[in-house]
């Protein structure tokens, strides 16, 4: 990959909680317009990695560049400007339950771009239609939605302001296979139409194959393998092999105490 073309460039990212080392010098590049999926076991620090890149957690060491600009340690106001380029779909959707669905989707249009409410609502209903939800859903409260609908609303909120970069944290976990595939389709479709750069996390391989240009595997705080999505079955990496075949035996030792 060419140096200058990296949209997101992570170097030596390290993060521990007390004595527990979660990230140990992680390097990752995401090129402009590329869709990278990070796979890895539960608790290996995938969510922590995203939160460090987003500035929600403060890493001990390392550098994160977005569009060539160092973003670690930026003051809050500067950070807000950078975050305007980014949309994020949280693992648990994280919809604001004191706001109606359409206000959730239009949140950054109303609060950050200061669009007037009727225009914001029209845009929100448009975006909801893009993820396959009718205008009547817009008037509901988040608590009135099923898990799959919440994910779709969260997806709509993440793409509503046409971000250049979108992060997806386990967009399909906990959904039935059909709904999972619907979400995958939507991600692929919304990314194509937006031309956005995306970084996703999943342990659902079907989902990874569908949305990824490139797959990277996180293990013990580092990226131990990365390559084009279609090469994942021929990686010749014992860790990757064990993961994609879901075998209990292999170089990855799950810490199971009896």
């Amino acid at each position: 990959m060419r140096e200058g073309a990296a949209k997101i460039r992570v170097r030596g990212l390290s993060k521990s909680f007390g004595p527990k080392v979660v990230l140990a010098g992680l390097d990752l590049d995401v090129a402009v317009g590329e869709s990278v999926v990070v796979i890895g076991g539960s608790g290996t620090g995938k969510s922590v990695m995203l939160k460090c890149i987003l500035g929600l957690l403060e890493p001990e060491a390392g550098s994160v560049q977005i569009d060539g600009e160092e973003v670690l340690g930026l003051p809050a106001a500067e950070r807000e400007r950078v975050n305007r380029k980014i949309g994020m779909l949280f693992q648990g959707s994280a919809l604001f339950d004191s706001l109606k669905v359409w206000e959730n989707v239009a949140f950054s249009l109303l609060q950050v771009s200061r669009m007037d409410r009727s225009a914001g609502k029209a845009r929100a209903l448009d975006t909801l239609a893009r993820v396959g939800l009718g205008p009547e859903v817009g008037e509901l409260w988040p608590a009135e939605l099923s898990g799959g609908m919440q994910k779709r609303v969260a997806l709509a909120r993440a793409i509503a302001s046409d971000p250049e970069i979108i992060f997806f944290d386990e967009p399909t976990t906990g959904l039935d296979p059909i709904m999972a595939d619907v979400i995958n389709e939507m991600i692929v479709k919304s990314v194509r139409t937006l031309g956005a750069t995306t970084l996703s996390i999943t342990h659902d391989l079907a989902s990874a194959r569908k949305i990824a240009d490139r797959i990277a595997m996180l293990h013990q705080g580092r990226i131990i393998w990365s390559g084009p999505a279609r090469e994942i079955d021929r990686s010749d990496n014992p860790y990757v092999d064990q993961f994609i075949h879901g075998r209990a035996e292999g170089p990855i030792k799950m810490e199971v105490r009896r």
Binding site: G55, M88, A94, L95, D97
Partner: peptide
């Protein structure tokens, strides 16, 4: 508190809202 434990506060930050 509920907003904190369900990541809604983090979501505010990612939506460029303090």
């Amino acid at each position: 508190g509920t907003m904190r434990v369900t990541d809604q506060i983090d979501a505010l930050v990612t939506l460029s809202t303090n």
